[in-house]
Design a binder for these strands. Structure first.
Length: 592
RNA sequence: GGCUAUGUAGCUCAACUGGAUAGAGCACCUCACUACGGAUGAGGAGGUUCGGGGUUCGAAUCCCUGCAUGGUCACCA
């Protein structure tokens, strides 16, 4: 609609001032709430062509638009702002179109569609998932869904960091001190069990360092010479040499971890189309690095290590392969990227959902891919997000302040349960139904809380406040949806026909305007890779509906046409709420 | 120290990318259920948008500068 109006404005300007102006010079925006109107034209940029005062310019354009555009009913000018009001008929017909559109808000596939691979989660296999992973998972999943809604072809993937020194640490500690403990024997979730031995390794390592320092070594020497770390390094080399015993242990312990992760992913509601394992890609990376040496873009040093000199690009020397020939993080990332493009040659964009602590890493990665001659290097994008802090500061595993993902989800469930019990609205639900509702509400609260914040900003997670369910929260929106459903349940046939009404009130108008915005919101969220855009919009919609609900009778409305209009508005609001929340990975209940 | 991000009400976050009197929620103070769900709504109070310059019709937004906070500069991942 604004596009149509833009060209009308251009037309009018041409007639008035004999000037052709580009679209970008026509600034249309939603009229602010405290002013009268639907759409506002900013006239300041037009003064150069009108050569009269802002007020006069607004007046002239306003008069011309009322004459030229049939749905522009009236206007007013405040300072340099021309506020335009549309006819009720215009908005009613907009509502009718919305009601008749399948998958309203979503953009069908077409010429603009891209093939996009979104990587997210990608944990290490040496410890369980925590709060930081939750933000990552929710963000990656939601952005994927948003891109799909924009008509793109999306594949969700992760690369599992299943090899490296970290997993060797867990393996070694388990081998030495584990006494064959298994998830079955201990009753521990697999990822938790492996994490336990990672912590055990760290403890022993610390003790050895302390002992060496006491015997006169420097801290640096102690860290390098502690027997247990040397053993771990040896194990990594054995692993790379495919030592059968080490590989067997490795496969067993990783298997435990994957089982544990699967449980967590399932509960979080995230999924993947394909999994990559670094154990399968680091060799490709090594080959790439070697070929880079041959091509002269990388350099081999005397000790055998391989580097890339990035000083001309304003960065440092970057290690790509250790002197003992083992791979580093960067090595395998190069290999993984190459493999992905081989798997999906039509790929247009590769998105990495990874925290901003790795901004530098990805800058370097993309640069290296370019140096290796991959023209698609410029299509790689680092979806960087801020860390999650606790009121006590950073999460630190050593200080035991890590918020475990499974524990947190349990807590959310319990809170939702307690809240519902307090409201006393559980009548008629079986225990099973009630539990699934609590899960929906608890997860809704958690997901909405984490996604409503702009991804690139660091966020504070206050356990006490985050589980709040009043105000700007997931359950508030879920409640609004349930309430609408409750109204709709009471009418026999849901009518999608928009009746002929002579006028609409301010609440109806505002809601239709908001509903009308939904497609633009999805587009904006896609362009910015920001679920927060969706979250804030859905909140505003729910809030506005609640105001409408208080002001306007629906079922008891005497005028049958007005009643139908309100029912359609209600129906569409519920649809858009459900649709928007789905993009965030949040389900909405019909009753709660 | 270099590079990089962030700084908005007591707290947690918005602000359509340069537009009007900077908006919400929480907390605090009022008020509203014999109409459809009170996990709600209406109102009040709360601001030098970190400080200082600049650009212009107009700045939270852009530029410069200072301050604060986080991240990062590993033969860790």
């Amino acid at each position: 609609m604004s596009n149509v109006l833009v060209s009308s404005v251009q037309q009018v300007l041409k007639e008035l001032y004999a000037q052709d102006l580009s679209e970008s010079q026509i600034q249309l925006q939603k009229t602010r709430k405290d002013f009268d109107g639907d759409v506002t034209l900013v006239v300041f940029p037009l003064l150069r062509v009108s050569k009269v005062s802002p007020e006069q310019t607004g007046q002239q354009i306003g008069e011309a638009l009322v004459n030229a555009v049939d749905y522009v009913e009236s206007f007013n000018v405040v300072k340099g702002f021309l506020n335009l009001s549309f006819t009720a008929g215009y908005w009613v017909s907009r509502l009718a179109e919305i009601a008749q559109t399948d998958n309203y808000g979503q953009r069908p596939k077409g010429g603009h569609s891209r093939n996009v691979m979104v990587e997210y989660s990608s944990p290490n296999t040496n410890k369980p998932l925590h709060l930081g992973h939750i933000r990552n998972n929710l963000l990656g999943y939601s952005v994927s869904e948003i891109l799909k809604a924009n008509g793109h072809e999306v594949k969700k993937v992760q690369v599992i960091n299943d090899r490296g020194i970290h997993i060797c640490k867990s393996m070694l500690a388990w081998q030495k001190y584990g006494e064959n403990e298994t998830p079955q024997s201990s009753g521990l979730k697999g990822d938790k069990l492996v994490g336990k031995y990672y912590v055990e390794f760290d403890k022993r390592y610390k003790a050895e360092i302390a002992a060496l320092i006491a015997s006169g070594k420097t801290e640096e020497e102690a860290k390098a010479e502690a027997p247990i770390i040397i053993e771990a390094r040896e194990m990594l080399q054995k692993w790379e040499a495919e030592d059968p015993e080490v590989r067997e242990l490795w496969a067993k312990m990783n298997g435990w971890v994957y089982n544990g992760f699967d449980t967590t992913y399932k509960r979080l509601g995230v999924d993947f189309d394909k999994l990559y394992y670094e154990s399968n890609t680091y060799l490709i990376g090594k080959e790439l690095v070697e070929s880079g040496v041959e091509e002269g873009v990388f350099q081999k040093r005397e000790d055998g290590s391989i580097w890339c000199d990035l000083t001309e690009d304003g960065m440092d020397q970057k290690l790509l392969l250790r002197s003992d020939g083992t791979a580093v993080y960067m090595t395998q990332d190069l290999g993984t990227a190459k493999l992905r493009y081989e798997d999906w040659p039509a790929l247009n964009q590769l998105i990495y959902t990874v925290g901003n602590e790795q901004d530098y890493h990805f800058k370097v990665l993309f640069l290296l891919l370019g140096k290796l001659g991959f023209e698609w290097a410029s299509n790689c994008y680092h979806l960087s997000y801020g860390m999650v802090d606790l009121p006590s500061g950073k999460m630190k595993s050593r200080e035991g302040t890590v918020v475990d993902a499974d524990d947190l989800m349990d807590e959310m469930f319990e809170t939702a349960k307690a809240q519902s019990a307090e409201k006393g609205k559980l009548d008629g639900l079986t225990e099973e139904e009630a539990d699934s509702l609590f899960e929906m509400l608890g997860m809704g609260a958690l997901k909405y809380f984490m996604l409503k914040v702009d991804p690139k900003k660091r966020m504070l997670f206050n356990p006490a406040e985050s589980i709040d369910m009043q105000g700007n929260t997931g359950p508030f929106i879920q409640y609004t949806h349930a309430r609408i459903k409750s109204v709709l349940r009471k009418v026999e046939n849901t009518v999608k026909e928009v009746p002929a009404v002579t006028g609409i009130n301010v609440n109806e108008r505002t809601l239709i305007q908001l509903l009308n915005q939904y497609p633009e919101i999805i587009q904006l969220a896609g362009e910015e890779y920001s679920p927060a855009v969706i979250a804030n919009y859905v909140y505003e919609l729910a809030k506005e509906y609640n105001t409408f609900y208080h002001e306007c009778p629906i079922l008891i409305e005497a005028d049958e046409n007005v009643k139908q209009l309100r029912l359609v508005i209600s129906q569409m609001t519920a649809n858009v709420i459900a649709s928007g929340m789905k993009l965030l990975g949040v389900q909405v209940p019909d009753r709660m």
